[in-house]
Simulated assay, not measured.
Amino acid sequence: MKTIFNQAYEQSMSYQEFLDLMDEKIKDGLSTGHEQNEILSNFTKLNRSRMKRVTKTVELLPELTEKIQNITEKQIWLVLTESWCGDAAQSVPVLNLIAESSPNIELRIVLRDDNDPLMQQYLTNGGRSIPKLIAIDASKENELFTWGPRPEKGTAFFLEQKEKFGGVTAEVKEALQKWYNDDQGQSLQQDILKQY
């Protein structure tokens, strides 16, 4: 019987294929995911430019690069995401850069709405929060570790802002994006480093 990881892997795409899909959706005024509206398509467009910036500006931590390059067993990093997700726009490019630094890590993008059985196994406080990284071994049967939907420090900052403003307000979303810009992928890398 196929594992849930196998099924997700079969429906997955490379990071470049995901970027190409985003570009196609932007051209058509759409987003990925089952729900379609102008807000989500606008976020997809904004996120595509954020992803370009993150890819150009993030520098990998030397200690993480060293650990990643010393991985000897093949790993597959399944990343549940959608094009409209602001957290994903800041984190998925960093995960891709980390994966690219090792010949033994294969990063695969898995669309959340098309892979609900996998998403249901990795809920965050009962919610379908993304991005969610599930690292598995080459057999596609064993989970190695998970990460997401935000860096630990980002989650702490978000909760602090949410309390300050009494919910997930525009001010909270703006403050979180500023936190990501200032952090430049460092906290996410520290989180991944703890896995090795």
Results as ranks from 00 to 15, higher is better:
residue 158 F to T: 00
residue 11 Q to K: 15
residue 104 N to Q: 15
residue 175 A to G: 13
residue 195 Q to Y: 02
residue 92 V to T: 14
residue 109 I to R: 04
residue 181 N to D: 15
residue 59 E to T: 14
residue 182 D to P: 02
residue 45 K to C: 04
residue 45 K to Q: 09
residue 175 A to W: 05
residue 135 A to M: 08
residue 136 I to G: 05
residue 63 E to Q: 14
residue 109 I to V: 05
residue 133 L to I: 06
residue 33 G to V: 13
residue 137 D to A: 03
residue 178 K to F: 02
residue 176 L to S: 08
residue 82 E to S: 05
residue 35 E to C: 05
residue 58 V to C: 11
residue 162 K to V: 07
residue 50 R to N: 10
residue 186 Q to N: 08
residue 7 Q to L: 12
residue 161 Q to I: 09
residue 69 Q to W: 05
residue 60 L to P: 00
residue 39 I to L: 11
residue 166 G to W: 04
residue 173 K to G: 10
residue 2 K to H: 10
residue 32 T to L: 03
residue 21 L to S: 10
residue 51 M to T: 07
residue 36 Q to E: 05
residue 157 F to Q: 05
residue 65 T to M: 09
residue 72 T to Y: 08
residue 171 E to F: 00
residue 179 W to H: 07
residue 54 V to N: 00
residue 71 I to Y: 11
residue 171 E to D: 14
residue 15 Y to R: 08
residue 39 I to K: 13
residue 54 V to Q: 03
residue 146 T to V: 10
residue 81 T to I: 06
residue 187 S to C: 00
residue 119 M to W: 03
residue 71 I to L: 15
residue 166 G to F: 07
residue 68 I to Y: 03
residue 195 Q to K: 15
residue 180 Y to S: 07
residue 130 I to N: 14
residue 119 M to C: 07
residue 48 R to E: 01
residue 44 T to K: 00
residue 99 A to K: 06
residue 53 R to F: 05
residue 143 E to K: 15
residue 87 D to C: 08
residue 78 L to K: 06
residue 166 G to H: 03
residue 112 R to P: 10
residue 178 K to C: 01
residue 13 M to L: 10
residue 191 D to K: 07
residue 156 A to D: 00
residue 52 K to G: 07
residue 105 I to C: 12
residue 39 I to R: 10
residue 134 I to D: 00
residue 192 I to Y: 02
residue 20 D to S: 12
residue 46 L to K: 11
residue 36 Q to H: 13
residue 160 E to W: 12
residue 45 K to E: 09
residue 181 N to Q: 14
residue 185 G to P: 03
residue 178 K to R: 07
residue 121 Q to H: 08
residue 27 K to H: 13
residue 73 E to H: 12
residue 11 Q to S: 15
residue 5 F to I: 14
residue 167 G to K: 12
residue 22 M to H: 00
residue 130 I to V: 15
residue 117 P to Q: 06
residue 134 I to T: 04
residue 99 A to D: 10
residue 84 W to Q: 03
residue 125 N to A: 02
residue 155 T to R: 10
residue 184 Q to H: 13
residue 176 L to G: 02
residue 101 S to N: 11
residue 10 E to N: 15
residue 128 R to D: 02
residue 72 T to F: 03
residue 196 Y to S: 11
residue 141 E to G: 09
residue 64 L to G: 06
residue 16 Q to N: 10
residue 72 T to L: 06
residue 86 G to H: 11
residue 45 K to A: 12
residue 29 G to V: 07
residue 7 Q to H: 04
residue 54 V to S: 03
residue 144 L to P: 01
residue 160 E to T: 14
residue 85 C to Q: 06
residue 172 V to F: 06
residue 57 T to L: 04
residue 135 A to W: 08
residue 143 E to A: 10
residue 170 A to Q: 15
residue 138 A to H: 13
residue 81 T to H: 11
residue 137 D to S: 08
residue 136 I to Q: 05
residue 135 A to K: 11
residue 79 V to G: 13
residue 111 L to A: 05
residue 174 E to S: 12
residue 163 E to I: 02
residue 113 D to R: 14
residue 120 Q to Y: 04
residue 126 G to R: 10
residue 104 N to W: 11
residue 47 N to E: 01
residue 73 E to Y: 04
residue 146 T to P: 01
residue 146 T to H: 06
residue 145 F to V: 04
residue 140 K to P: 01
residue 47 N to R: 02
residue 73 E to L: 06
residue 143 E to Q: 14
residue 37 N to W: 09
residue 31 S to R: 03
